[in-house]
Design a binder for these strands. Structure first.
Length: 373
DNA sequence: TGGGGTTAT
DNA sequence: ATAACCC
């Protein structure tokens, strides 16, 4: 059972299931959910914060806070004004740069991968670990050592969080609780939501989730975004895009793989709630891809040119415009190593160094190939 | 509502 | 390219 959360039973009708010992279908999946992760990272960085009510701020939101702050009435995603009003002593740190959170997040995942490689990430602060194999092996070991009555049982809890849109559609059908969903006609639900969504959520309503834990592996995309009150000129947009791109290039450089697609995302100002984004993407020209490992100096300008073309494709710069968000995304990541084993290119990777700027590129031996010798 | 991510269509 | 979902 995945996504089982004992703590959240609350008002939800809970469906406990006994997992029989040795049952061939039972799986052992641990859900590791770190609470107030960003705040914890900040407290590790600066232990003086540990004794204080701490909030992590992004723009005018307190996106998360530590327990001290929670005791004093601060909630996740609370307005900074409201939070300060509730808790004037609240210490705020800026958490708009996710670099350290992302790094710590992957450290947690890597730690869990030592128990089993089957670890699925969900956001930066949740991991699902499939420990079935480990448990089965230990069970075998125990049974051969001491074949006394060995019974293992556990229980799982059904938990439902249906997404915003689906919630609205279900409400329209008069479905507002898990019980309602359990008893609702499958046929009608399938007609309303499509067979895929209908069957899945109805199984979930009974606490049945047999979806596998899918190892996340390295990320499929890298993106950087920035929101703001107003961006209404091309120059302004270009400056912001350059900032986002610079950070992204550093990240891509460290990752080692090469993105083959680039996307620009905008959010236009709208007085209504609507909150919708638009994007344009295109393949990254191959001559730029080739230079990607080498350092950012040579790629910055041509890449900005590409992005500004995407920008003008979306935004008519001859007309007034008002944007509230810009985001750049690298995706379609490829393991760069098209080089054949045994050739010199296979063993060498372009490297950042002082000589690379003067036109003489340098190369580093890849650690992963040391074992080849 | 931030600044990210994923998968399905 | 967008929509919907997750945190």
């Amino acid at each position: 059972m995945k996504r089982a959360e004992a703590g959240e039973a609350g008002s939800w009708p809970v469906h406990d299931q006994v997992v029989p010992a040795g049952s061939s279908s039972s799986r052992v999946i641990v859900h590791v959910d770190l609470d107030c992760f960003y705040a914890q990272v900040e407290m590790i960085s600066n232990p003086e914060l540990k004794s204080k009510p701490l909030g992590v701020q992004q723009k005018y939101l307190v996106v998360t806070c530590n327990y001290e702050a929670r005791k004093l009435g601060v909630k996740k995603l609370m307005n900074v004004r409201d939070a300060k009003e509730k808790c004037p002593q609240l210490v705020l740190v800026n958490g708009e740069d996710l670099t350290r959170y992302r790094e710590m997040s992957y450290k947690v995942t890597e730690l869990l991968e030592e128990f089993s490689p089957v670890v699925e990430r969900l956001g930066f602060d949740e991991n699902f670990v499939d420990l079935t194999e480990m448990v089965e092996k230990r069970l075998e070991q125990l049974q051969s050592d001491e074949p006394s009555a060995l019974t293992v049982s556990g229980h799982v809890y059904g938990n439902q969080r249906i997404g915003y849109k689906t919630t609205k559609r279900l409400e329209a059908l008069g479905i507002s609780s898990v019980r309602d969903l359990q008893t609702f006609s499958s046929k009608i639900l399938e007609k309303e939501l499509g067979i895929s969504v209908a069957q899945r959520i109805q199984k979930l309503s009974f606490g049945e989730d047999n979806s596998p834990v899918t190892p996340s592996g390295p990320p499929q995309s890298f993106s950087e975004e920035d929101s703001f009150k107003k961006c209404s000129s091309e120059v302004e947009a270009k400056n912001k895009i350059e900032e986002l791109l610079a950070s992204l290039l550093n990240r891509v450089c460290q990752d080692g793989r090469k993105p083959h697609t680039i996307r620009l995302i905008i959010r236009r100002y709208s007085s209504e709630k609507h909150y919708s984004r638009e994007s344009r993407q295109c393949p990254i020209p191959s001559h730029i891809i080739q230079k990607l490992g080498i350092g950012n100096y040579d790629v910055m300008t041509p890449m900005v040119d590409v992005l500004m073309k995407l920008f003008r494709n979306m935004v008519n710069v001859k007309m007034p415009f008002h944007l509230t968000l810009l985001s750049v995304c690298f995706c379609n990541l490829k393991a760069l190593n098209t080089a054949k084993k045994g050739t010199i290119d296979y063993y060498l990777t372009p490297s950042l160094s002082t000589t690379s700027r003067s036109g003489k590129h340098s190369f580093k031996m890849k650690d992963t190939h040391m074992e080849d010798f």
